[in-house]
Design a protein around this nucleic acid. Structure first.
Length: 936
RNA sequence: GGGGAUGUGGCGGAAUGGCAGACGCGCACGGUUCAGGUCCGUGUGUCCGAAAGGACGUGGGGGUUCAACUCCCCCCAUCCCCA
């Protein structure tokens, strides 16, 4: 799609061809001169002579990409261009800007490609990274290239492994709610200040001691149930399993199995991960998603006695409603069900409760079979509540009353304690169940007059003995105190969050810096042995099994490399044989801390020099969490990546390695660029770029096609790449278009044909400065007309405000308006063109640099001062007031800005005298500087 | 089922209580041109009207206000997250 013919175009017009001559030239200039190198306060990247050394800092970061084999499409760089425009502006406004870019290069696609083709993932990854770098460079993104790395670089994952060792070698001290070195725990056990669970420390064998210590580590090996997927040959995290119990990738069956796996004790940080959200400048929906994911609920564990020795423990968030607990429900699978159920129904059992079975055992057996056939989703969603009486009664500890114990599938075994106390008066599900089974309902919170159903609102307690008249919050606290005092329960906080499954049976990931000795217990390698380099192997795939073979065992690619697995090492006890851990870390590991490595990427003594960390990420004032000043990326990482990164950062903070206690102070979710796709009558996708719109329909050739909307991708045949846009229009036009098409946080459809509008804008700017026929500079030194000067300064003030708020679309609109004001003027004044170029340069840096040079400036404008509006020029000469009569504009009056309210009122009333038709105004409102409103 | 977000011309969007539709695409007309998927100019929410002008108009309904796209309540649609 050529934009103009070669023959008649003026020689010096800003065409795609000219843009493609200018752009690589400036990219080379920036690279050669290190224009975007940011000086550190300390270390090899320190540069006291740099124009921004010691200036206020700004650390802006994009979520780094996984370099996929298909390269970038136009949607990917939206956020990158946004942060680039923002940081270029901030650099000109005086900040020392850190804006780096790296690559999240471990991951499954390269490994799967390796399995298929035999190409080493390192080769594929390196090629993809180079391709990405080329595409990003072509867009003119102003990164400090000295700070770029891939998570697959041994120099980088050395420190990922180092952090793992920090986590492994620490434990969470509940008393001070902080991670501490494991040595401190050992010291407490040795000194006897911390009790050991079974026998005294002195009587424990070395292995027992190690097991006890290992149970406290923040990284630990667990025999816990995991999602084992034989078809893929690996375990999966919960979020990689679909609701119907299959793998998200490949759709293989997933089995719950107890397997030895590495876990990270993220649950220890549950409270802080929730509470510190309050310190963050993040979108509220993302905070809410994190809160929901962590799922902290506060309440109490309450013990209900039974006829046998057993107690039924429930967790409730509403201990204040205990007097209204009129029955209990256990999950059908609950272990106590068989123990407490009597041999025969108690006398007078309601036939609805027993479901007409002759014994409790039969009823339970039948109900379990029924429940087992349902998925978790069906169980919790079921509209009609089902269940059956166990025949047993439990004792409500607050009033000694016997309450019947049911089993019902709306209580899940895997959630909480698998048992609930049912309070129909205050819980909708319990209310429904109580209605079905004719159970008593006692309100314990005062409900509004005439209220029907379960009341979950907040009012005073009733029917609750000593709690009567107290509010919910107070009643909860008093009940918890009473339960603890009488030994019937204790206050508790529970979390939905589970510990983080941290090992994968994969090749292309970071090896663990862990070996096992003859006891089978893990031993940390010393820092001096880092990095543990990922060895070459012949076969990259984990062993896969019959997808339905639940009893198969994972076999990792690294486990087959015996000469690597079996090593002789001296770890302090002389040379001994050890076996290496053969799992690798999940892809999240590398992205959990990369924001820190950008600060000091070449440091081989430390993860990051403390001076550099404090400067770029340290707290800026009392109570500030510190962290990256602006972190931009898609909302799809709202929970996992951001939660894991916060967790690691807090561990590093506790251990004294960083001064910030949050990694990302401000988060911004950019929208997505999506695209239309077209299908023919058979449902096949046709190339979107060849579809034309005519007669109110869409056609591929002569064939009518239907339009749909979705992600860009090969399968939908609707990919548009930044390279195509650069070829057709140049990078600057593409950048301006992406920034002008809407607010950064809103998703929108891509429309190639609209890009030309941005090119026309840049052509007009070019034409302001350069004669298209001769190439001569047209700019003169004559002063601006006063009205134009005012427009210029209004633009400067508005653009600065928009840039600060990341409102690039309206900033560009203001620049277009200014340009359109200047275009028809007979003389082109430097007074206007230079500030215009400086303001345009964050969006169209190559064009701005080129014209800046033509206007006689040497070097780059990257450090030129961003224009500042003259306040005197922002004062309007006159103000036009619309005059409304009963809300409709009937006239406009022009008055001096210094006119007082009375005179504005008088002028306005005169102007609308006709519309008033002699009626006397009831009310006249003069809004200074805005409008006049007359009410009759 | 629960939670969140969004809804403005043919299209992307602007205006966060104060003149709805900035800016751009598209479209129409005019100029330049042998020509035009070029450039320049003018117009472009809908309806009535030749025009002046008028009426209507921000998913639907109600409310607060001199004034509501904006704030409050109810409903609808689409998208996202959780179950």
């Amino acid at each position: 799609m050529p934009t103009m013919s070669e023959s008649e175009t003026p020689n010096f017009r800003y065409t795609a061809a000219l843009a493609n001559e200018i752009e690589p030239r400036w990219q080379a200039f920036w690279a050669e001169n290190g224009t975007f190198h940011a000086p550190n306060p300390a270390g090899v990247l320190a540069d006291p002579g740099h124009p921004r050394a010691g200036a206020p800092k700004l650390h802006v970061q994009d979520m780094f990409p996984y370099p996929s084999g298909s390269g970038l499409h136009v949607g990917h760089p939206l956020g990158y261009i946004g942060t680039d425009s923002y940081t270029r502006y901030k650099r000109m406004a005086g900040f020392n800007v850190l804006h780096p870019m790296g690559f999240d290069a471990f991951g499954l696609p390269a490994e799967q490609y390796a399995v298929q083709t035999g190409t080493h993932p390192a080769v594929t990854t390196a090629a993809n990274v180079e391709r990405y770098k080329g595409q990003l460079r072509r867009l003119g993104l102003a990164y400090d290239d000295r700070r770029s790395f891939s998570t697959t670089d041994p120099d980088y994952y050395r420190w990922t492994q180092w952090i793992f060792l920090q986590v492994f070698n620490s434990w969470f001290d509940d008393k001070i709610r902080k991670a501490r070195p494991i040595a401190a725990l050992i010291a407490e056990f040795e000194a006897g200040t911390r009790p050991t669970p079974e026998k005294a420390w002195a009587e424990m064998s070395p292995v027992e001691r190690r097991q006890l210590i290992d149970d406290h580590r923040l990284a630990y090996v667990s025999e816990a149930p995991v999602n084992w997927c034989p078809g893929l040959g690996t375990v999966l995290a919960n979020e990689e399993v679909t609701p119907d119990g299959r793998s998200e990738r490949g759709n293989f069956p997933v089995f719950q199995r107890s397997l030895k796996q590495w876990m990270m004790r993220i649950t220890a940080y549950g409270d802080r991960l929730v509470e510190d959200l309050d310190t963050l400048d993040w979108p509220e929906p993302v905070k809410l998603m994190q809160r929901n994911w962590i799922g902290r609920s506060r309440g109490a564990h309450v013990d209900f006695g039974t006829a046998t020795e057993d107690k039924i423990t429930v967790f409730t968030t509403r201990p204040d409603t205990l007097f209204g607990a009129t029955y209990m429900v256990l999950a059908p699978e609950h272990e106590l069900v068989d123990k407490i159920a009597p041999a025969a129904w108690p006398n007078g059992t309601n036939p609805k409760w027993s479901a007409s079975y002759t014994t409790p055992a039969e009823a339970i057996k039948a109900y379990r079979a029924e429940a087992a056939a349902k998925t978790e989703e069906q169980r919790t969603e079921g509209k009609e509540k089902t269940g059956v009486f166990t025949g047993a009664y439990a004792t409500n500890p607050v009033n000694g009353k016997d309450v019947p114990v049911f089993i019902a599938d709306y209580v899940l075994a895997g959630y909480g304690t698998g048992a609930i106390m049912a309070v129909p008066g205050q819980d909708a599900r319990d209310w429904e169940f109580a209605e079905v089974f004719e159970l008593p309902i006692i309100r314990t919170v005062k409900a509004p007059e005439g209220f029907e159903g379960a009341f979950t609102g907040d009012d005073v307690a009733i029917n609750s003995d000593w709690l009567d008249g107290k509010g919910v919050v107070e009643a909860k606290a008093e009940m918890i105190a009473w339960l603890e005092q009488h030994g019937h329960g204790r206050g508790a906080t529970t979390f939905r969050l589970r510990d983080w499954l941290f090992s994968r049976q994969r090749y292309w990931g970071e090896p663990f810096p862990i070996v096992y000795d003859e006891t089978g217990l893990p031993v940390a390698l010393p820092e001096s042995m880092l990095p543990v380099v990922l060895p070459d192997v012949d076969d990259f795939s984990p062993r896969t099994f019959d997808p339905d073979d639940a009893d198969s065992e994972p076999e990792t690619p690294l486990s087959r490399k015996k000469d690597w697995v079996n090593v002789e090492l001296d770890l302090g006890d002389g040379l001994k044989p050890y076996t290496r851990e053969t799992n690798t870390m999940p892809q999240w590991a590398g992205s959990c801390w990369y924001e820190l490595r950008y600060l000091d990427p070449q440091n081989d003594k430390a993860l990051v020099d403390p001076d550099n960390e404090a400067y770029w990420m340290g707290p800026q004032r009392d109570g500030d969490c510190g962290g990256v000043d602006l972190y931009v990326g898609g909302v799809e990482h709202a929970v996992l990546h951001l939660l894991y990164a916060r967790f690691w950062h807090k561990v590093l903070y506790d251990l004294g390695h960083v001064s910030s206690f949050e990694p990302f102070r401000r988060l911004f979710n950019q929208g997505y660029i999506q695209a239309y796709a077209y299908q023919d009558a058979r449902g096949f996708y046709v190339p979107a770029e060849e579809v034309v719109e005519r007669d109110g329909g869409y056609f591929y050739g002569d064939e009518a096609v239907t339009r749909s909307y979705g992600k860009m991708g090969k399968s939908l045949k609707n990919v548009v790449t930044p390279d195509e846009m650069c070829d057709q229009y140049g990078a600057d036009t593409f950048r301006v278009y992406e920034m002008a098409m809407g607010p950064l946080d809103v998703s929108r459809p891509w429309e190639t044909r609209a890009v030309v509008g941005s090119q026309r804008f840049l052509q007009r700017v070019w034409r302001l400065a350069v004669d298209e026929e001769t190439g001569a500079v047209r700019v003169g030194d004559e002063p601006l007309e006063p009205a134009v000067r005012k427009h210029l300064h209004r633009t400067i003030a508005g653009v600065r405000e928009d840039m600060d708020e990341l409102r690039f679309n309206t900033a560009i609109a203001k620049l277009i308006e200014l340009t359109n004001t200047l275009t028809p003027l007979p003389a082109v004044s430097r007074e206007a063109v230079e500030p215009l170029l400086l303001m345009l340069s964050p969006f169209a840096p190559h064009l701005a640099e080129e014209l800046w040079g033509k206007l006689g400036h040497a070097g780059t404008l990257a450090y030129a001062d961003f224009p500042v509006a003259d306040p005197a020029q922002l004062v309007a000469e006159s103000i036009t007031y619309p005059v409304q009569v009963n809300g409709k504009v009937k006239a406009r009056v022009e008055v001096s800005p210094t006119a007082d309210e009375a005179s504005v009122r008088e002028v306005a009333l005169t102007a609308v005298a006709e519309a008033l038709a002699g009626r006397t105004p009831k009310k006249v409102i003069v809004v200074a500087g805005r409008l006049v409103s007359v009410v009759v």
